[in-house]
Write a protein that binds this DNA or RNA. Structure first.
Lengths: 218, 218
DNA sequence: TGGCTTAGTGACTGGGTGGTCATATATTTG
DNA sequence: CAAATATATGACCACCCAGTCACTAAGCCA
């Protein structure tokens, strides 16, 4: 958690710092991100960072928490019960994600890049815990769909939940793989992750759903 | 490529070195792997490494190449045309992979861990190229299945190929995620990646296939 | 034996890092 | 105004790394 000193800062300086570090962590691995570079760029002393945060990890977690909170404002309101099936629910979730991306591009970039920090030893354990939460959430959704009679019930729940998680991630992967989105470039241009690619993205989402549905639906 | 000096070494020393570095790169990221540590452990001078290889990357690529060649001896003989459908073909491929793992555990660990090097800046570009090759191979297989009338033809080929790649990888992911395999531990105990877990693994392969088939089959 | 080629060595270089701390500067309080 | 408190600073520390190089040792051949 940031120290009181940081919270006391006037908000323009707070966001100067926050945004600079969001940028750095969006482009580099946790271990590769360089505090020295960032403070040089924004013209504050390295010591200041340590008046605001305990250490690099503390700073990183603060950014995770803030970005997640912002994203939640967008996707938190999307409820399964307002949609006829999991897949339209999923699609709407994605649409709200795009809105988040448009309106909070830095946070979006940061969260988008989180997965790249997977194997930075310093955050590996933490990442495992976070992944566990996500997978558990997907398992819960799968369970609900099975109970509703929407998903098939002949596959172990953990297998189904895990695959649901992976096919969700696969869309993001393919977008990056195929070069449709190039987060490293778009962040330099101060653009959202999906800038101008919204239709292509939603189109790919449709294709993925169309492909994958028969594996899950009853 | 290793220098002549390395190739001239008597094979016991060659494998001492090879195996020590396979171990190191199996447990750490490319950037985190420490030549200094390894040479200390096996009792040779750091300078020697640079008489054998141009640099760290050269050494790494040598290990990739060697390990891949060994694995190919196992899986190279498995042909699609000897099996009734993609899924039994895939399963047999996996079985041969398990044999490779049993008989060449160090190479297996190394290749297993390759994906963790994904975002080490020093190898990121190379990894992209490798991934491109793999995805292309999966696309080719998808195309073949469509032409054979086995896979559905209403999904763009690239989407299908990419998903085929991802669901293949998902098995490995889930094995690691669920703690069924713990490569970091098994390598310390000098055990293969899948030691004693063969039935569980093949069982999970079956479950994945059962789940995912309806998405691809016509 | 001596001479030549190949292999092996480890102190050292240059560079980067996260984190510290004594000191200086603002800002608030009385 | 002065005193006290909260911020800001940047030189500095300890650490670790890949890679170099002048030098030593070993093996081989005549």
């Amino acid at each position: 958690m940031p120290k009181q000193t940081f919270l006391n800062l006037k908000s323009s300086k707070k966001s100067l710092i926050t945004e600079a570090f969001l940028r750095e962590f969006s482009v580099k691995t946790f271990d590769d991100a360089s505090l020295s570079d960032v403070v040089k760029n924004i013209g504050i002393a390295k010591g200041s960072v340590y008046q605001y945060f305990d250490d690099k990890l503390d700073l990183f977690f603060y950014l995770v928490q803030e970005s997640t909170m912002v994203k939640m404002k967008y996707v938190g309101s999307v409820k399964r019960e307002d949609h006829p099936d999991y897949w339209t629910f999923f699609k709407v979730l994605y649409e709200h994600g795009l809105q988040f991306d448009r309106e909070s591009p830095l946070q979006s970039h940061f969260l988008h890049n989180l997965v790249n920090n997977l194997h930075s030893p310093s955050v590996a354990q933490w990442y495992r815990d976070m992944e566990k939460q996500i997978v558990t959430a997907f398992e819960g959704m799968a369970k609900m769909e099975i109970d509703l009679g929407c998903f098939r019930d002949d596959i172990p729940l953990d297998v189904m939940g895990f695959m649901l998680y992976k096919v969700g991630a696969a869309i993001q992967n393919q977008l990056e793989y195929s070069g449709i989105i190039e987060s490293a470039i778009s962040i330099q241009k101060n653009e959202p992750v999906f800038a101008g690619k919204e239709e292509i993205v939603m189109d790919l989402v449709d294709k993925h759903i169309q492909l994958v549905r028969p594996a899950f639906d009853k």
